[in-house]
Simulated assay, not measured.
Amino acid sequence: MTSLFTRDLLNSFKSNLNHNVVSAYNISPIDSYHNCDEYWFQLLILEKDYPNSENFKAKLVYGKKKYLDQEYGTGLILPTNGVEIDADFVSKSDIEYSTVRFLLQCRKLSQLFTYTWLNPNEIEKEMKLKIELTRIILDTYNIIPDSYILSEKVPDLRLKQMLLEIEKKNPQLLDFLIKPESVSYASIPLALLLCGQAYYYEENGELTRICDPILSTYELIWEYAVRLSWDTFYATRIDISQAGLSPKPPYTKVTMGYPPKPNEFSLKEEHIKEWVTAKEHYECGGYPFYPEKDSENWKNKQLDHVVAPYPYIPLSCL
């Protein structure tokens, strides 16, 4: 089945939060992993070609969580849970939870992609490099970086053989990897950016996350294969057809809109800034996601802005 997500469709979901727009798996698969130290993970790390270079090069780093912690510091959060919903608005046990989370993910994706359009002079100092690196990843999302086992570069064939040997002994240890044979692997830089597993080095040598997780590690392995389209403002979601009795994840292909920036006549710079800097809560002003606390809309679970108030801004969704 193919779904096209338009402004009207997304707005209709906010008035009907009982709509089963996504699978309500409640993120419990990640919660069931109590100790992930022995599990393998992937990081996308962008670093300069050499100290004074302006060019960044990406590398795909593999390793057990405990060794990644030793190499890069215990600040790594693996696996990730994606966006967090205000528990006072809906809890995980509420029937509306999965749709609210889906709509917040749509909004966050739209803000992230649109942020790359903002004039660099309008971007806060602490965000400039992160947005520059985000743009690099989006522009090269389908180019697979060189692979490393921690700090050691490894050829693709050797990497595949190593993963195959681990899989034969204990396949569960690879539950948090996007494997080379997966349909998601062709866009792995984008997947790791969106689940908060893309990093860069600060000037002080500290490894820093480029983007807070919008999707969870679990979703980008088991649920969605993500792509970008450079010629549409909408997003499409297609069920992946697989023959046989044992289909392999992911089960859905999502193509998100990432078109060229419209000209000033179609979309003003201040409108871009208003949208990408909009906070989630009503008390922060701007275009909030949640209604005013304790208002009738809050009690009736009526969301405010799930899409941008201006046309010509991408409607990216899952």
Rank of each mutant, 00 (worst) to 15 (best):
Y218T: 07
E270V: 12
F13C: 06
M162C: 02
L17N: 06
D31W: 09
Y33V: 15
Y234H: 09
D239C: 10
T236G: 14
F265Q: 13
V307F: 05
I27M: 13
F233W: 11
L164E: 10
E84D: 12
A58N: 00
K92C: 01
S3L: 13
N142L: 05
E152T: 12
S147K: 11
S28V: 15
K125D: 00
T140P: 03
A186Q: 11
S241M: 14
Y185G: 06
L4F: 14
F13Y: 15
E126I: 14
G75Q: 11
K279L: 12
D175P: 02
K14V: 01
Q197V: 02
N35T: 02
H19R: 02
L78F: 07
D304Y: 15
H281M: 04
L9C: 03
L10T: 09
H19T: 10
K160C: 05
F233L: 14
K108M: 10
C211W: 03
V90G: 02
A243E: 13
D31E: 09
T217L: 11
P79F: 07
R101M: 08
S295C: 02
L4M: 06
I166K: 06
N300R: 15
L192R: 08
I240K: 01
N20C: 10
S98Q: 15
A186E: 07
Y310L: 04
L43G: 01
P180Q: 05
V21E: 05
S12V: 00
F233S: 04
P249F: 04
I27W: 15
K168H: 06
K169V: 14
E152V: 10
L150N: 02
V21F: 10
T217M: 09
K130V: 00
Q302C: 04
D86C: 09
D304M: 15
L174C: 01
L17A: 03
C284P: 04
A278W: 03
N121C: 13
P291M: 03
G73H: 06
L103P: 01
K14Q: 13
N81I: 11
D69S: 08
L303F: 07
W117Q: 01
L150Q: 07
K66A: 01
E152C: 11
P171Y: 10
K261H: 10
L228A: 03
Q172P: 00
M256S: 09
T116F: 07
A87C: 05
S12H: 04
V183N: 11
E280A: 07
V21A: 06
I144K: 05
Y25D: 10
D304F: 15
W298G: 04
V254P: 06
Q105W: 04
P288R: 01
F233V: 05
E47R: 02
D37A: 13
S23H: 08
T140H: 14
I27P: 00
Q172K: 04
L215I: 08
F89R: 06
G286L: 07
S32I: 12
K14C: 02
K48M: 00
E206L: 04
E269V: 02
S266F: 14
P145T: 09
P145H: 08
F41V: 00
M1C: 12
P189G: 02
P250R: 08
E264L: 15
S184M: 02
D175Q: 10
N297K: 14
A186I: 10
K168I: 08
S295E: 01
S91C: 09
W298H: 01
Y258S: 13
P262K: 05
L60N: 00
